[in-house]
Amino acid sequence: MNTPTQPPVIELNNVTKRYKDTKAVDGVTLRIDGGRIYGLLGRNGAGKTTLMSILTAQDPETSGDVKVFGQHPYENDAVLSRMCFIRESQKYPEDFSPAQAFKSAALFFRNWDQDFADRLAEEFALPLKRRIKKLSRGQLSAVGVIIGLAARAELTFFDEPYLGLDAVARQIFYDRLVEDYSLHPRTIILSSHLIDEVANLLEHVLLIDNGRIILDDDAENIRGSAATVTGEDSKVTDFTAGLPILHRERLGSLTSVTIEARLGTADRARAAELGLEIAPVSLQQLVVRKTMAAPAGGAGVDPRTATDPSELEVAP
C-alpha cells in the first residue's frame, strides 16, 4: 500500500489515443493508488487494451499526460521494469519453447519466482519443451498467465488472459491469483469480459466504454448500487418514480425495471408491502445495462455519440 508521500501508481490526465479518425481512448482522467486488484471492464473494442498499451508505453498516447510511478513510461526502463503486460495475442519468438520464454522472463523481472512458474506450468499441464508455435490457444494463454503471475511485477496487467482456457484452468488462474496476491500484495489490473467469474476478486472497478471511463468505484460500493424491481406495472412505476432507470422490460401486466439506486430497509419494506420483488443486479448485469445503450463495436464509432450514464434510460 502507498503512503501519502508516494505518487499514485497511475495518473492519467485527459489522455487520448487516436487511430486515424477514431478515438480508441478519449480524454481519460484517472488515478490509481495501487495495492489492489482492479477490474478493467468493458466491451470488445471499448479501449481496454489501448489503455493498457498506453500505460506500458507499448503504444503511446496521442495527447494528454501519462504518469506511472510518477514518471512517463515511454522509453523509461526504470518505470517499465516495474511492470508486466502480456497481451491477449502476445507474440513470442517463433523458435522459443515455454521454458525458454520463462528463462527470458527471469532475466527481466527482478521478482521472478521460477519455482512458482514451474508449479503453475505443472498445474496448467503446459508442455515446457514444445515450441510455442505448436501450442494450443489455451496453452499459449497459460504461458502468458504464468509469466504475469510469476513475474510478480509491482504493476501487473492481465488482458483477457483466459482465451482458450477451459473453466478448470480459469479457476486455477483465479485461485493462484488470489493466493499469490495475498502473500505478495501488488497492483493488478485485470481486464476481462467474463465479469461474473472475476467480480468477487476485484476490489475496484473501472468500466470503460467508447474510450471513456464511465464507472470508477470500489467493487463493494457498486454491489447493491442497482436493483431490479419486478411487479405490477403501475406499482413498479410508482415505486421507481424519480429514480435513475437503467433498463425497463415488460411481460404482460408485469414490469421489470432496473434502477441505479441503493435501496434501504425502508424501501425494501415498502416494496414488500406493494408486492414487488427486488432482485440484486450482478456486476455483469450492471455493466451490460450501462454499456448497452452505446452502439456496438466501439471501434469505428464516433465517440461523440458515446452515452452519458444519465442518458441510458432509453435502452433498446
Partner: peptide, 15 residues
C-alpha cells in the same frame, strides 16, 4: 485467516 477466507470464497483478500 484473511487469506484462507479469500482463497476459500475466491474473493479479494482486502474484502
Amino acid at each position: 485467516s484473511t487469506n484462507e477466507f479469500a482463497a476459500f470464497y475466491r474473493i479479494n483478500p482486502a474484502t
